[in-house]
């Protein structure tokens, strides 16, 4: 009971501190902007820990954060192996292939207006469908190893990136294209020097959406069959063994991997599209 009350007391205290920071001059500083969400996240962990320990919630329903951390520390080997199989082999390769294919298709489609008008509605329609459902079919075709996971990822990232790139290639306005024409620039110089750079904000929007999809695709595809390693495999088998601390450990790894992947793409975007208004100031 003490633990529960302690957790709740910590919650109230942290909330008061956050309110104080948010309403003071600190709110505008970098430290304040960082401190408030971190304190909030910490509060969630403390309340979680206090409630689980205080109310004696069994580990097969909800393990405490410290249990999960211990599990992560004691099985770094397995976690790394799963991460390597699912993320580095399946998700990353599929992401690279899918995005490259989508960009090349977009450039090809863009040359023919008829195709562009036809493919854009179909592409955005397909992008809204539950494409992850193709996982059982692709696992059947490409086998249990990483190839089938990469294939699922390719199909999942293809349409969002395609639609965004095609939209982006239209972004350079008429005056700019006319200017290139007055310079006597042909199709390729115009594409490389004007239209592709102008498409970058759109392209990166698609690439950022695709990072999350890639990880989801690789993990869900493993629910339909995999070698005896991989994050999706570990999650589904550990759930079956009621080893929930392992499941949470994998989810923590997936969460960190997902945000890092997104962060890296966002960082590259910053370098590439430094000229865009959304990146300035």
């Amino acid at each position: 009971m003490i633990l529960v009350l302690g957790a709740l007391a910590f919650w109230v205290l942290a909330w008061l501190v956050n309110v104080a920071i948010a309403n003071s001059g600190w709110a505008e500083t970098r430290i304040g902007r960082l401190a408030v969400p971190i304190l909030f996240g910490l509060t969630l962990l403390v309340v979680w820990e206090g409630l689980v320990r205080g109310l004696n919630v069994p580990g097969v329903i909800l393990p405490a954060p410290t249990d999960i951390a211990t599990r992560m520390a004691s099985s770094t080997g397995i976690l790394w192996q799963d991460f390597h199989q699912t993320f580095l082999r399946g998700a990353l390769r599929g992401y690279a292939i899918g995005c490259a294919a989508a960009v090349l298709t977009a450039i090809a489609v863009d040359r023919i207006d008829f195709l562009r008008r036809g493919l854009l509605p179909v592409g955005s329609f397909l992008a809204a469908l539950p494409i992850v459902g193709t996982a059982p079919i692709l696992v059947m075709w490409f086998g249990f190893d990483w190839q089938s996971k990469a294939a699922v990822v390719v199909v999942m990232v293809f349409f969002p990136v395609l639609v965004n790139t095609v939209a982006g290639l239209q972004a350079a306005d008429l005056a700019q294209r006319d200017l290139m024409r007055t310079y006597g620039a042909g199709y390729w110089p115009t594409l490389i020097k004007l239209r592709l750079p102008a498409a970058m904000p759109f392209l990166f929007n698609g690439l950022k959406i695709a990072t999350t999809l890639a990880l989801i695709g690789a993990i869900v595809a493993e629910f339909f069959g995999s070698p005896t390693m991989g994050m999706g495999f570990r999650i589904s088998t550990s759930v079956g063994q009621l080893a929930l601390d392992m499941v949470w450990a994998e989810i923590a790894v997936a969460a960190v991997a997902g945000s890092l992947f997104y962060g890296v793409v966002a960082l590259i975007e910053r370098q590439v599209t430094f000229w865009h208004p959304s990146q300035r100031g």
Partner: peptide, 24 residues
């Protein structure tokens, strides 16, 4: 205060493969 503490997490959570939690 709610804006500053919750909003970064709401945005960050979109980069996480939430679907992995489903079986659990």
């Amino acid at each position: 205060a709610m804006d500053m503490s919750v909003m970064p997490w709401a945005i960050a959570s979109q980069t996480i493969p939430i679907l992995a939690i489903a079986p659990m």
